[in-house]
Amino acid sequence: MRLLTHNMLSSNIKGVVNGFPLRIEAEKVVEKNVEMNGDFLKKMFEKIEWKAFVEASRGMGYTELPEEADSSMLDSNEFLNRFHHALLELHLEEGALVCPETGRRFPVKKGIPNMLLHEDEV
């Protein structure tokens, strides 16, 4: 699972008001090279929740993203490279996602988070 997907996922448990962002418990992180596309990154930058994104990248062991970011930084190639790497190239392979409100763990196996809810959570 890439951080792009993590930034969209929220906990869907019944009664949870703010299930975003899910905390990352990383056990194994892999990197896969992906071709960079500046236009796509610029479009995604508007949609990404930056604070959650930086926190998630730290959870995965990548610390080179700035705390704050605004759209003017997108002109810098160095920033784009880092953003691209964190957004699309880092994969959470094994670990878990934890709901910020209830502490419920969604296990991640072979890169696939198991978001299935139990009967009483729907």
Partner: peptide, 18 residues
Amino acid sequence: GDLLLGDMGQGLGLRFGM
């Protein structure tokens, strides 16, 4: 693409306008 194991009938749990 990224894969998720989930049940669409439980709602998608994805953020607004993504």
